[in-house]
Computed example of a mutant assay.
Amino acid sequence: MTAYEEIRVPVAGGELAALRWPAREPDAPVVVALHGITANALSWGTVARLLAGQVTLVAPDLRGRAGSSGLPGPYGIAVHADDIAALTGALGLDRVVLAGHSMGAFVAALAAVRHPDRFGPLLLVDGGIGFPAPTHLSPDELMTAVIGPAMDRLSMTFPDRAAYREFWQAHPAFAGDAWSPEVDAYIQRDLTGDEPAMHSTCRIEAVRTDGIGLFDDDVLSAVRKLPAPATLLWAARGLMDEPQGLYDEQRLAAADLSGTLLEPVAVPDVNHYTVLTGDTGAREIATRLVALSNIPSPCGS
């Protein structure tokens, strides 16, 4: 495990928790990285290891999760975007590279649109490009369609940490050699409470509000309004390691990204989780983050 420090910064309603993996050099570039809808900052642990201190990585626990679970509502993608702008302001950061996985990619895109002076190039990981919501579904049905079993987990209890580990190890996305010390630390950061009734730190209200908010017009249109270049790394396989991923060539063609600053790039042999937590996907992410951190800003700084 790569060493990190936990910090807290002021945001609306309280303090946002974040993890910081320092670079080897004090003046190295900084990357801010955002997690998915029921995840937490330690989902970026494998990327942090493979960055090998070339940049400083700062990953917040988004409002309503893990170290930030005590932050009150309102929730929503726009609230997260403003929280991230507040985070960079509190840390004295300007025009940092912004990365996001899954829901975090939608937050990153909207943050770049709402706060263009705060962020530079973007790296979106298996998220950020959405599709209009089916009009025949209720909000709860929509949530089931979006994240399915992940939502069910939030209401479950577990007798101890070993049981939570076993629950996740049975997940198809983490089969075989997909499990690692970083994955274990990531899932354990999500667990809170006392034995024998431990539970996820994620606030169901936050997850529900954020999931429905992924279909807001401002969120869906953010990738078409990006003020800086962006790359989308999309996983070949899906949330349950199924052959159909969230994106494919046909879906991206239907999204019609022509005229945008977004370049889609496929990452083979990974699923929606391992594109971030596995060595293959995380190495691709780390390599691109280092490269993006060396891109001069449009302002010529």
Rank of each mutant, 00 (worst) to 15 (best):
M143Q: 05
P139L: 00
L124P: 00
D140V: 10
M151H: 10
V125R: 13
R114H: 15
D126H: 08
G120W: 01
G130Y: 11
R153N: 08
P132I: 14
F131K: 14
L137N: 07
T135H: 12
R153P: 02
P121I: 01
R114M: 14
A145M: 11
L142S: 00
H115L: 09
P132Q: 14
P134S: 07
R118D: 12
L142F: 05
L122C: 10
F119S: 04
G128P: 02
P121N: 05
V125I: 15
M151P: 00
A145R: 11
P149V: 09
T144E: 14
T144V: 13
L137E: 01
M151S: 10
F119L: 11
P149R: 15
L124F: 02
D117Q: 15
H115E: 09
A133Y: 08
L137F: 05
L124D: 00
A133Q: 02
A145N: 08
G120P: 07
A133S: 14
G120I: 05
I129W: 10
F131N: 10
S138V: 02
V146W: 00
P139K: 07
G127V: 01
P139E: 01
G127M: 04
F131R: 15
G120T: 05
G130K: 06
R118A: 15
R118M: 10
E141Q: 15
D126Q: 03
I129D: 13
G120Y: 05
R153S: 07
A150F: 09
D152K: 14
F131C: 14
F119E: 05
I129T: 13
P121E: 00
G130T: 12
D117W: 12
R153T: 13
L123F: 02
G120R: 00
D140I: 09
R118F: 06
G148P: 04
T144Y: 04
F119P: 09
L123H: 02
F119Y: 11
P116E: 13
